[in-house]
Nucleic acid binder design. Sequence first.
RNA 1: GCCGGGGUAGCUCAGCUGGCAGAGCAAGGCUCUUGUAAAGCCUAGGCCGCGGGUUCGAGUCCCGCCCCCGGCUCCA
Length: 628
Amino acid sequence: MRVILPDSTELELPDGATGLEAAAAIGPKLAEQAVLVRSNGEVKDLRQPLDDGERIQILTTRDTADPDALAVLRHSSAHLLAEAVRRLYPGVKIAIGPPIDNGFYYDFDFPEPIVEDDLERIEEEIRRELSEGRAWERQEVAREEARRRFAEEDESYKVELVEAAEEPISFYTQGDFTDLCRGPHLQDSRPIKALKLTGLAGAYWRGDEKNPQLTRIYGTAFYSQGDLDQYLERVEEAKRRDHRRLGPQLDLFHFSTHSPGSPLWHPNGTVIWNELEQLRSRENGKRGYQEVRTPIIYDSDTFWTSGHFPKYEDLMFKLDVRGQEFAMKSMNCPGHMLLFGSRPRSYKELPLRFSEAAPLHRDELPGTLHGLLRVRIVTQDDAHIFCTEEQIQDEIASCVAQARYLYELFGLEASAELSTRPGNKIGTDEQWDMTEAALEEAIRLNEIPYTISPGEGAFYGPKIDLFMDDALGRKWQMGTIQLDSQMPSRFGLTYVGADNTEHELYVVHRALYGSFERFIGILIEHYAGDFPYWLAPVQVRVLPVQDDHRATAGEIVGKLKDAGVRAEVDERDETVGKRIREAELEKIPYVIVFGDRESEDSLAIRARGGTQSTQSLDDFVAGLLPPP
RNA sequence: GCCGGGGUAGCUCAGCUGGCAGAGCAAGGCUCUUGUAAAGCCUAGGCCGCGGGUUCGAGUCCCGCCCCCGGCUCCA
């Protein structure tokens, strides 16, 4: 048989040859450094036979940054971790141990709980394994045999996995440790040059909180110590961008234990909020949205009608109002439904787009709160578009386009997730075909990378969720665009068509920032606090050099303010160097130093970061960019 | 909510096996009249997260609670 190499040359091999044999046929050094085979985007273990005509690429220990090469290294590292834990903690049960984005983990069921300090001795044990050296053997076994072996060892989680495992079922053995595993794995442990256990956490078996909680040990591994050092440095750098650190530091907001999960916005943070609010208002205005204001609290009947109580009751704050139960809204839909239903509606009014940025209160579980990214007061840039069936496609497309425009404005990169029909859907398959296709087309048209989550849509319609990463690479849902016919019918809403009869009404729920809180959190990390000029809380600071420059500096600030610039003077009795340093730490876009050498026709402008120029006041103001 | 780690001055942190609570920066005062990332001197600042317990004595040990951090679950 023959296989095709990356440079398109063909390699003649005996039938059934493995990746390792292919590597050996090319050169002994390649065989020594090989870690896995990639063919058509899939990865294969070196010990598995190749197919005739297969296009293959052999990855080696020198492909240190290749995601597949790293994954295999980390997967093998996870097995070393399991081996170590099994030796150190008799009676432990092992669950699963996959590679993940920045490392790997393995889940265990310990007879006695372990603590963080235990990681050190486990890591030592792994180091010992590494110095002894380990090699991986692959073995394919019958399901019954696999089940028997794990049952004998009392590895109940593995028995469960065997039931669900796809054929062929394979085992990998290193040292005296054998694990059920699809592979691929390294040939031996020599390429693992750097390994570190990074954390300890609880994790539910199979991700279901009804299942027992296991102990997850996180780690990471690299082909070189330098790569590990670099990775740790990147993590440190990311921590410096953390909005929970920068927010209070830049005097944007803080959290108080008197209202957990609800930020208190300082003047600086409020400036940013208001700029975003105005942007929202301008953009919605251009697209035919109408601003509305609806109540924060409603009686319980409303939430039974809307369907929020059956599903979200335990995350809603409830109130006793003179013996009657009320609740604070966790979404704007009910108010907008009531507003729409205040009088009969004609097809001539549709589409009708109501927008409102009202605070929503959600009683999120304490353990889930996370700075601005997960809060109990959520201010969505919400809107509900009431429309006919024929208008759905255009309205969805327009929402996605607006989201894309918005994100590009900030240089943010989003990814989308399309959630399709669930098992308990209502409506016909033809309707779902139509609406799912409409949503997918809108995403594709706007060139947003996306994945499909089959069955994750609401029972009344499919949805698009838009995600972004924080500084540490964690994904957060931002915008959401959801199609719905259920809510209007729950509130008995229809419209009168040209034929003078009532018709089924559709509504598109959409938020594009997602929430102001989360969006600002992401922006802080995205810019690392260096906001673009139009968002910067203080845009220009003027520093008089000596006392007798204060008067003129004050006049310059006055003129800047008249021109709409957020300017202030820093006339504190500190050296110029100190005041510049502080302006830099506060990340103010422009500093103007004003002394004997300057005049209004010739100002010394220092841009954030240190570049200096000389400009007249008028030229400087003319060069400032207005908000988008 | 669950697993693990934390909470000491406005901020960053030290405080060994229980024995008078500390540093740097920030703040306030004074001196200096200042030129593109930190002038000098002085001063003040603490319910050691909250509540209970053990002890002659608790920041330190034990129990409960709150909040924060890393995850899980959940979610904009």
